[in-house]
Design a protein around this nucleic acid. Sequence first.
DNA 1: GTGGAGGCAAGGGAGCCTGT
DNA 2: ACAGGCTCCCTTGCCTCCAC
Length: 300
Amino acid sequence: MDRSNSSVHSPEKTKQKLTEEELVVLQSHLEEWKEATGKDRKTILRVVIKEAKMQAPKMDARLLKTRKSMYWDWLYNRRAEKTLKKQSKFSKKWTARLVIEHQYKKEILEKTGARPGGKEMIKYYQGAVNAIMGGLSEEQLEESNKTAIEWSSRAPPTDVQAEFAQKKAPGMMKDLATQLWRQAGMRIFILSAWKTEEGEVRINGIDFNDKLEGSSFTDTKDWKPMLPEWNAYVGEEFVDRNDDEDGNEDREEKENRNQRRKKEEFTLEVDTYGLLVILDMKSLNLEDKKSLIRTFLTKH
DNA sequence: GTGGAGGCAAGGGAGCCTGT
DNA sequence: ACAGGCTCCCTTGCCTCCAC
């Protein structure tokens, strides 16, 4: 932000630096910009141009055009401060469309008019999404847009998280383990805990070392002693997170939750006696299953 | 024989990248 | 700033491959 720092080389080619006032305007729209996509970014840029132009030094039409590019570049280059070069491969950006696909899943499938899973269904899927979206009001679409920003910047609701935990998380963990091994020569073993859509806590130890030029940790070492501590932590952590989640729950909801908490504690307690909780078998491939079952049998 | 993993199908949207 | 090309994503169940 040091104005005296402007380039002294080939001044005729050097753009005039953005003023502090212009930067204030840009900064005020940055967060909005980061969460927006495509068309919305253009809308934001228009607002920025309108506001920043008032703060900009006097200039002719040609310079003004350059200025607009500078605004765009300034915002674009700050689109993801933390990972400027590359978005994390683990991040997920929700769009209004993706939100609608999730929220209207049942209606969309009905709309395809075909048997789920068939070629016909796949063929008509996108059209069905478009039809559903076409049937929504401006307000509903705007709401989906807001939801998309909310889900991207904070987190999607628990049912979406549960689905992700089941369908995508195993692949993500394998990816993480592979990259850490390749890029850092690092070995990891992941002890995880997550909540299903039904609200049950599942615990899983997962290890890809035998697929990464190494031998399996879970297969060759006794990792059971880790479980009691982990279970205790999970018991506390998952309960706390729920209580913090929303402040406006009614009493009935709270009671249901407490009942659920008891069930969780029971599950976890059993676990501390040394039973491995491998409820999430679906998420494991054959090798991992064999490995876990071998470990399980060895320990009993 | 059984059962899991992974590929596959169509097609529209969206982001990224490159070049201008 | 933006066009165009490329790649990936998303949907669900079928089907093949493979290990046991």
